[in-house]
Design a protein around this nucleic acid. Structure first.
Length: 482
RNA sequence: GGCGGCAUAGCCAAGUGGCUAAGGCGACGGUCUGCAAAAUCGUUAUCACCGGUUCGAAUCCGGUUGCCGCCUCCA
């Protein structure tokens, strides 16, 4: 089985080959910390996390770098508005990000480099570009000469001449050409600034990613990811400046996640048209949000809404229920009078499990298709429930089969990061008072006092627990989302 | 205007040449249940339209229609 990855530049799936045997370097464009993280950001980072987990599982030694761009016009503007330093704004949203990174079970990156911590490296690269004639200084600004870059536009499929009409006209700038983009920006009065050969100033937008990705991952990076909206101009410019500086290929595989739409419109910071992850997490658990995000292919453009999350929650619950059921079976002693599993369908399950495992990995190998992979998980869920309904004793008689299925769910969890605290188990710590109420309710039920029984059930519900009556007595489960 | 993408069931969503078109949600009917919940069984699609290539296409090519994205800060 070989891993295939879709590369934006080549516009097709390619077999994945790392630069260095057994190692993978991934650079994922993180946030420009000018506002709260929203669902679109989280999609990107969950996708990156899933990719990292899968590569690690596949045996690669993965180095994962995710930056923070912590100085830019908007951050400065916001700081001025609130009468704070730009660092205060940056810290605030970096803190927010980390909170939800944890919430969504995103494994920490190996490093979170920040633009302001790499000013020296940035100046070095800008100087190198000037020395090579790819960039020029003008009135304290430094610009990249786009027209001189023969391969400019190869990522986004744009021709330089077509770009001209759309180029923004900035008044008061001193570019040789409208298309040229800023590498270094002269500071105005009162703006954060660093000393440079061109006077006091700060980095332009794209340069920090080139510098930091090459610093930590080498001049040719295996994978570079981000939202599709970064293809142009951000990533295009990164390629232009990086390859002009080094003379060789900057990134081997460009991974771009599809953008989330909201009521037919792209979520966007500038219009305020977005769901912040903070709002969403007040209604749904981070696990559900993550599960939803993984249930469609990361590259497809999807319509986001609360209804989608509710659907995901219902499905996620089913997976959890099966895990709990399996855990109960594995922790209780095998029943007496074991029948031959082969005679009553145990073999059918084992064969099915093998198929599901195979299909799951085939899906993941096909450009990290977590959506399809989750479909296969549901096939397994359904099969277990079917067996449970048709022959309740069967799995209890077959600890080997239970172990096998449980370990497969464990695998799914490692790769997809479904559960923040490991596989859900039946071990539920019931508060004494709840236990008491449950016992009281059982008594009422025995006596046929349904009125009291229902009242007690409501009371237990109020304490955050759900009661489900079954042949083996009542089952208590924490309420969804708790 | 330029470039690009998409169109699969009530909704969401996999599938890019060949077994019965994954899976989820919902709905309806049945089983279970004091009721409920959970679970399960069954039902719920020929892939926007037209033409072409092919033994064979949702899948490739051309056209039509409709949506959307990028071209300006954005995951």
């Amino acid at each position: 089985m070989t891993l295939k990855v879709y590369d934006t530049l080549r516009r097709k799936k390619e077999e994945f080959k790392p630069v260095r045997e057994g190692k993978v370097g991934i650079y994922f464009c993180g946030m420009t910390v000018q506002d709260k993280p929203h669902m679109g950001h989280m999609l990107a980072f969950v996708a990156g996390d899933m990719i990292k987990r899968y590569l690690r599982y596949s045996g690669y030694d993965v180095t994962y770098i995710q930056n923070f761009t912590d100085v830019d016009d908007k951050i400065i503007a916001k700081a001025n508005e609130e009468g704070l330093e730009y660092q205060d704004i940056a810290e605030r949203y970096i803190g927010e990000y980390f909170k939800y990174e944890k919430e969504l079970n995103i494994l920490p990156a190996d490093k979170y480099p920040r633009a302001t911590e790499h000013i020296g490296d940035i100046i070095g690269m800008v100087q190198k570009l000037i020395d090579k004639g790819a960039a020029y200084e003008s009135e304290g600004d430094v610009y990249f000469r786009v027209r001189q870059c023969s391969f400019y536009g190869k990522l986004s499929g744009r021709k330089i001449d077509e770009l001209k009409s759309g180029a923004r006209i900035e008044t008061g700038d001193s570019k040789e050409d409208d298309l040229d983009f800023t590498l270094w920006k002269a500071a105005k009065e009162g703006e954060p600034a660093w000393e440079s050969p061109w006077g006091r100033g700060r980095p332009g937008w794209h340069i920090e990613c080139s510098v930091m990705s090459m610093k930590y991952l080498g001049e040719t990076v295996d994978m570079h990811g981000g939202g599709q909206d970064l293809v142009f101009p951000h990533h295009e410019n990164e390629i232009a400046q990086s390859e002009s500086a080094t003379g060789h290929n900057y990134v081997n595989y460009w991974l771009h996640n599809g953008l989330l739409n909201l009521q037919g419109e792209k979520m966007s910071k500038s219009t305020g048209h977005f769901f912040s992850i903070e709002d969403i997490c007040q209604e749904f658990s981070g696990e559900v949000v993550r599960f939803y995000l993984l249930s469609t292919h990361f590259r497809s453009r999807t319509e986001f809404g609360r209804d989608r999350l509710k659907e995901a929650e219902a499905g996620f619950e089913r997976i959890k229920n099966v895990c709990i059921y399996l855990d109960e079976l594995s922790s209780s002693a095998p029943a007496e009078g074991v029948e031959s599993p082969a005679a009553n369908g145990g073999e059918r399950l084992l064969g099915f499990v093998d198929d599901v495992e195979k299909d799951f990995f085939a899906a993941m190998d096909d450009d990290f298709n977590s959506g399809e992979a989750i479909g296969h998980i549901f096939r397994l869920v359904k099969e277990i429930n079917r067996i449970k309904a048709e022959n309740p004793g069967l799995l209890g008689h077959d600890p080997e089969a239970v172990k096998r299925v449980l370990s497969l769910f464990g695998l799914f969890d490692t790769i997809l990061g479904l559960f923040r605290d490991g596989l859900p188990s039946s071990g539920l710590e019931l508060p004494d008072e709840v236990g008491l109420l449950v016992a009281k309710r059982e008594e009422a039920r025995k006596e046929g006092d349904w009125g009291s029984a229902d009242r007690l059930r409501d009371e237990i519900l109020g304490m955050g627990f759900m009661v489900e009556d079954g042949p083996a007595g009542p089952k208590i489960k924490p309420l969804k989302g708790h």
